[in-house]
Each structure stands twice: as C-alpha cells, then as structure tokens.
C-alpha cells in the first residue's frame, strides 16, 4: 500500500465516525486491532467504545488538521468537538460543548488498521466536563482558572 492509500483508509475511518455510520469499519479495522492507549484488544472492543461515545456526544465531529505517513504508520492531528447530551460512563448529560486537541498514531497492515496510540489533552476535556477540581495548592498555582 502507498502512503496515500494508507492515509485514505484513515480518512475513511474519521468520515465514518463523523457520519455515525460504522458500516465501513469492518473494511478499515482489523479484527485483532489493538488500541494501546485505551487497552482495547479487538475490533469489537473498539465498536463498544465508539458506540459509547456516539451515545454521550451524538453531535461529535473530529476535524483532521494534519495527516502524515511514513512506512506503515499514519499520524493524524485533529480536534474533537462534541456536546455532552447523552449519558457517558454514567455521567448524566451536562449539555457542555467540549473541544479536545488529539493526535492518533495508526499502524496499517494490508489495508487495515492493526494498532493505535492516542494522545489527547485529557485534563482539559475533563475540566470542561466539570470533573476536575483544583486543590488549595492548585488554586494558588492557577489563579486565572479559578473563578
């Protein structure tokens, strides 16, 4: 597969997630796909995770800002934006619109994604959902963040 073909596979994946149409996933993700960051060990576990996301953030959209490939790897820098209007991990809808900076790294073999690593500004997203509190020490350190 060429670098452009590998990038096209990842673009199709993002498009499927954005459209909430997961029918192309079987063609894109290998059955024994591993997500090292979220400790997912199969395509089925990925499907569970993405469906949970769709339920919690039904309008979510991932905008690709950069896509880079070499060898069997594709790197994607993207922005996640979504509104928390459904239950997510037991958290009742907050109605909050969150945006998160992310980078995903994929390894592709024979036209299918076999491995993924994701690095995201998790602290910022959890702050936006109201799940982070500053300690007394933290309030002194980040006075600009404390209302």
């Amino acid at each position: 597969m060429s670098l452009d073909e590998n990038k096209a596979i990842i673009r199709r994946w993002f498009e499927a997630e954005n459209k909430k149409d997961l029918s192309p996933i079987d063609d894109i993700v290998a059955p024994d796909f591993v997500d090292h960051t979220h400790q997912l060990k199969s395509r089925g576990e990925y499907m569970q995770r993405i469906n949970m996301f769709i339920k919690g953030f039904p309008d979510f959209h991932e905008t690709i800002e950069d896509i880079i490939a070499e060898g069997d790897k594709v790197w994607v820098r993207f922005k996640f934006a979504g509104t928390h209007t459904g239950e997510y991990l037991g958290l009742a809808p907050t109605g909050k619109k969150i945006t998160v900076e992310c980078v995903d790294i994929f390894r592709i073999v024979d036209g299918k994604a076999v491995e993924e690593w994701e690095i995201a500004d998790g602290l910022d997203s959890l702050k936006q959902l109201g799940l982070i509190e500053y300690t007394e020490k933290g309030k002194k350190l980040f006075p600009e963040d404390v209302k």
Binding site: G90, L131, I132, G138
Partner: peptide, 9 residues
C-alpha cells in the same frame, strides 16, 4: 497534588 479528579460514575 494540584488537582483532584472526581471521575465518571
């Protein structure tokens, strides 16, 4: 020790 994470339920 700057933040406390409340976690999802």
């Amino acid at each position: 020790g700057v933040i406390e994470y409340k976690g999802f339920p």
